Amino acid sequence: MTAIKNDWTPEEIREIYFKPLIELVFEAATVHRKFHNPQKVQIASLLSIKTGGCPEDCAYCPQAARYQTDVDVNKLLDLDTVIGAAQKAKEAGASRFCMGAAWREVRDNRDFDKVLEMVTEVKKMDMEVCCTLGMLTDSQARKLKEAGCKAYNHNIDTSEDYYGEIISTRKYDDRLNTLNHVMDAGITVCSGGIIGMGETDEDRIGLLHTLATLKKHPESVPINKLVRIKGTPLADQEEVPMESMVRMVATARILMPQSMVRLSAGRKEMSTAEQFICFMAGANSIHSGEKLLTTPTANFEEDLEMLKSFGLSPLQANLE
């Protein structure tokens, strides 16, 4: 059995990341089969429960108030709308329902109370509940846990060295502090990053190093491919080559064997063959539905058909 390591060095990660691609994929596939059923894929659905108007300046995000994009600002959705969306996602095959709000941080107010109610009601539907609401305090994380939140998404986006090129309105340590609050509350961590933002391979290695040396590996590691949105500072970045996505997926699988490695944003732009190679390399989770917050993604019907053609099927919810 491959040992779980939390003391990876950058040099060790670099050696894995730069292996010949065919060898890297084979090694990752071997590790994957030791820890997971290779025929099962978790399907998660992500709903934007409060859209746009965010005060942050994340260079990739169309929800930042300072950028001129096609995203409209909307207030927090009502409970019935959220429950209806969760029910639709469940019927389509999703086992995890994620709720995202374009907040810099959670505030202790009526909106947060409403989110806690949403979490409780979705949990009653026998779905795994995930939230992504921005920065959290320790007490807020514990309230989410009590309400039934299983996972919390808070991506670190890129390496610590490159972080300031992408975001100036918060620090890297702010991200890590929230992850620590989430872990201390007993909520599983969903944290990954985005490639294609102008970073180098060394930055990608740095991103993976941060995740793989947390005190506990994230339960989910989303690998996002930049979706280039008109009006954002990164709109004119070059397309991410398939090899880069495969290297990130495979290296993440080897470093964090027990984690779910998720093909997330940007999957709409990937061909079926490209996605197949990522599944071979250890990806075992996808976001599905009409949108990933505000950006297009593949719909449930297309995804179920694709998975079936690969001999894969949806993973059932883990409600423990």
Rank of each mutant, 00 (worst) to 15 (best):
T2N: 11
I4G: 00
D7K: 08
E11K: 14
I13W: 09
R14D: 12
I16G: 07
I16H: 06
F18V: 06
P20G: 04
L21Y: 08
I22M: 11
I22V: 09
E27G: 04
E27T: 10
T30N: 06
V31A: 03
F35M: 01
F35C: 01
F35A: 01
H36W: 14
H36L: 07
P38L: 06
Q39V: 03
V41I: 14
S48I: 00
G53V: 00
C54M: 02
P55W: 04
D57L: 09
D57E: 07
A59Q: 08
C61H: 00
C61M: 02
A65H: 05
T69A: 07
T69L: 04
D70F: 00
D72F: 08
N74L: 05
D80C: 01
V82W: 12
A86N: 01
K88I: 09
S95K: 11
F97P: 12
M99K: 09
A102S: 14
A102E: 01
V106M: 05
K114M: 13
K114A: 15
E121A: 13
E121P: 01
M127G: 03
E128L: 11
V129K: 03
C131Y: 01
C131P: 06
T132G: 00
T132E: 01
L133P: 01
G134V: 07
M135D: 09
L136Q: 05
L136D: 04
Q140F: 06
E146V: 08
C149L: 12
K150L: 11
N155M: 09
D157G: 07
I166Q: 04
T169R: 02
K171I: 02
Y172N: 12
L176W: 04
T178R: 07
H181T: 05
M183P: 02
D184I: 02
A185W: 02
G186Q: 09
I187H: 07
G196L: 08
E199I: 06
E202N: 11
I205L: 05
G206L: 01
L207H: 03
H209C: 07
H217Q: 06
S220I: 15
K225F: 10
G231F: 03
G231E: 03
L234G: 02
L234W: 01
A235H: 10
E238F: 02
E239T: 08
M242F: 10
V246N: 01
V246L: 05
A250E: 13
M256D: 09
M270T: 02
S271H: 02
E274S: 15
Q275M: 14
F276E: 15
C278K: 02
F279V: 07
M280E: 14
A281Y: 03
G282Q: 03
G282T: 06
G282N: 05
S285E: 12
H287V: 15
T295N: 10
T297F: 04
E301Y: 12
D303R: 02
E305M: 11
M306Y: 15
S309M: 12
G311E: 03
S313L: 05
Q316W: 05
A317I: 11
N318A: 12
N318V: 10
L319G: 06
E320M: 09
